[in-house]
């Protein structure tokens, strides 16, 4: 249990630091359409069995911290709460026959296989990013622009996600 907690804690600190120190500046450098967001991975990699309410609260806390660095109070928090709420629904929807295997499984290629992992992560990031850009515009008048930015950011974020998962081979 303590192993799981320390693993998550280190991951939180590492990815959060990378997000606000590196990816934020990188996103600003490559224009308004490509935004690199790796931090939703933290929510995705939470243990599968934790209650949704707890995931939502963690999502809110995470989002607020990110918002603190992005100077957009509530926007990232809203997106994180939304994706944290969607996560169990998503996991149930992509559940393999016979359920998830392994002790304390998390949503990683190690437990799911790359194909399933990319499917779940793709939808998860899409929901998160879409909600984020919708909250940024705060109106569906610019729906086309919101969708375009969502897809562009999804591509680059998932690319980074694959690199990360390939490098660290997260198991817990």
């Amino acid at each position: 249990m303590s192993n799981l907690l320390t693993a998550n804690l280190w991951r939180f600190l590492g990815i959060l630091a990378a997000q606000v120190l590196i990816f934020k500046q990188a996103s600003e450098a490559i224009g308004p359409y490509f935004n690199i967001f790796l931090y939703p991975l933290l929510l995705l990699l939470l243990p599968m069995v934790i209650p949704t309410a707890l995931a939502v609260l963690i999502g809110f806390a995470l989002g607020i911290v990110v918002d603190f660095f992005y100077a957009t109070p509530g926007v990232h928090a809203g997106a994180s709460v939304f994706s944290a709420f969607c996560r169990p629904l998503l996991l149930a929807a992509f559940e393999p026959k016979g359920g998830y295997s392994g002790k304390d499984p998390i949503t990683s290629p190690h437990h799911l296989g790359w194909q399933n992992f990319l499917l779940i992560a793709g939808v998860f990031f899409f929901l998160h990013l879409f909600w984020y850009f919708a909250m940024t515009e705060f109106t569906l008048v610019y729906f086309g622009s919101i969708l375009l930015r969502t897809v562009a950011s999804l591509l680059i974020s998932v690319l980074l996600l694959v690199i990360y998962m390939g490098l660290f081979r997260t198991k817990t």
Binding site: P51, T52, A53, A55, V56, L57, G59, F60, G63, T72, P73, G74, V75, A77, G78, V81, F82, A84, F85, P88, M135, T136, E137, F138, T139
Partner: peptide, 29 residues
């Protein structure tokens, strides 16, 4: 139903924060 209740509560809180602390979203709202 803790999931959906906490989701609605936190999302409402986020809305409140967004509207009150972001000039652009406040104007849209």
């Amino acid at each position: 139903n803790g999931g959906i209740i906490s989701f609605i509560l936190m999302e409402a809180l986020c809305f409140f924060i967004i509207i009150h602390f972001n000039t652009k979203q406040a104007a849209v709202w």
